[in-house]
């Protein structure tokens, strides 16, 4: 019965159904995606995404509606359409098709230029950005606040402030990504890349590496705390462990569970790592033999992480 009714009056059911799906989706979206941005860069990306989707509809809807409609109307048995077996060319149709497609292209192409120039990750998003140097490693992240502090797997930023990251890596290629603040950029050994963003309101989220890099890839993420300016200043004053301890341990351990805050390294440490990644890694394998001690450590770290994430209601 219901099926028959849906068949008769699809629009009556389609709209609520679509709304329900969207609602479910958006409620799930409270997590870590670009659709729930927490800063102007990610917000820009979301608006580009929606605008492109909408701009594609005028050229796509005729196909999406036309295909099933024509399929029904011109079916051999029971179809109502006229039959014209030799109709195979029409100047009007040709003009409309090529014209419509070209027009769509011109619009999205034009928009693209604006979007890309407006959101160049290399361009600072405001005056006097905070500089943070980033080193992605197997399977942890080091953040250096030059002359002030170094942290592992913990990035603390003041709210509503432009930030510029200098990014490199030590082992495999990684991709530095905090989806709710800004899109990703690769972190590569021997290379430096940059990313600029502006933080939003205070929040606790996380960022991660999105480029598969081996045994502990699921653990390759870091905490991102956006805090008030006072909290940020206080954070920089917090007690720190000696740099030498970090330098030694960072090389050796695969995943990180130790202390997070350290004294800063010497001034040009990040640059040195970029020029010669091997100073920050012992170059161990990223895939490990089953049952090797290193693999067992990682299994343990994964289980611990799962335990933690259960405590946090899965948010991490």
């Amino acid at each position: 019965m219901l099926f028959h009714d849906i068949y008769k009056r699809p629009s009556r059911y389609a709209v609520p159904a679509l709304m329900a799906v969207t609602a479910v989706w958006l409620s799930g979206c409270a997590e870590n995606g670009v659709m729930t941005p927490l800063g102007p860069v990610a917000a820009g990306e979301r608006s580009h995404l929606i605008s492109f989707f909408l701009w594609m509809l005028p050229i796509s809807l005729p196909l999406l509606i036309g295909t099933p409609w024509i399929a029904l109307r011109y079916r051999r048995r029971g179809g109502k359409g006229k039959y014209d077996p030799n109709w195979s060319h029409s100047v009007a149709a040709e003009t409309a098709i090529w014209g419509g497609a070209t027009l769509t292209f011109l619009i999205v192409g034009w928009l693209t230029w604006g979007h890309v120039m407006g959101e160049d990750p290399y361009k600072p998003t405001g005056k006097d950005p905070i500089h943070v140097q980033v080193i992605g490693s197997e399977w942890k992240w080091m953040f250096i606040y030059p002359d002030k502090m170094a942290t592992v797997n913990k990035l603390v930023l003041p709210q509503h402030t432009p930030v510029e990251f200098d990014i490199t890596a030590t082992g495999a290629m990684q991709s530095f990504w905090i989806p709710r603040l800004a899109g990703q950029i690769y972190a590569m050994p021997g290379m430096g890349t940059k990313m600029n963003l502006t933080t939003g309101d205070t929040t606790e989220i996380f960022g991660f590496n999105s480029q598969f890099n081996g045994a502990a890839f699921p653990l390759d993420k870091f905490e991102v705390d956006v805090v008030t300016k006072d909290q940020y200043d206080a954070f920089l004053q917090e007690p720190k462990h000696p740099w030498a301890q970090l330098e030694a341990a960072f090389k050796k351990t695969a995943t990180w569970s130790g202390p997070e805050l350290f004294e800063p390294p010497m001034k040009d440490y990040w640059m040195k790592v970029m020029m010669n990644p091997s100073i920050a890694t012992d170059g161990g394998a990223a895939i490990l033999p089953d049952n090797s001690p290193a693999q067992k450590d990682i299994d343990k770290a994964i289980n611990q992480d799962l335990h933690l994430s259960q405590l946090n209601g899965g948010a991490q």
Partner: peptide, 11 residues
Amino acid sequence: ANPTIDFATHN
């Protein structure tokens, strides 16, 4: 194909 959207959806 729009690079800024790709930043948010790549990988």
